[in-house]
Amino acid sequence: MSEFFHMGGYAAYVWPAYGIAAIVLLGLLAATWKGLRDAEATLKALESAHPGRRRARAAGQRPSDKSAGTPAEASE
């Protein structure tokens, strides 16, 4: 088994190559997943704040206040 991890003396090159690929692919998947959850949550909040969607014209309601909670998405 230790021979397997030794990789014929090239362990220092082979394992980092697999490690980098794993980090990039898993990291990208995690970031994608988080972005989707955030976007879905924001969309839900906005839609429930304006049930009639763009028809939400009730006097006194300031929709911009609602969106101020998640400014990060606004710039995306």
């Binding site: 969309l43 906005l46 763009r54 939400a56 014209r57 929709p63 911009s64 969106s67 606004a74 995306e76």
Partner: peptide, 17 residues
């Protein structure tokens, strides 16, 4: 696609505002 919907909603909400 969600982001685009969010943007449309915000724009229309801002216009209403």
């Amino acid at each position: 696609i969600n982001q685009r919907k969010i943007q449309t909603l915000r724009l229309s909400a801002a216009a209403d505002g």
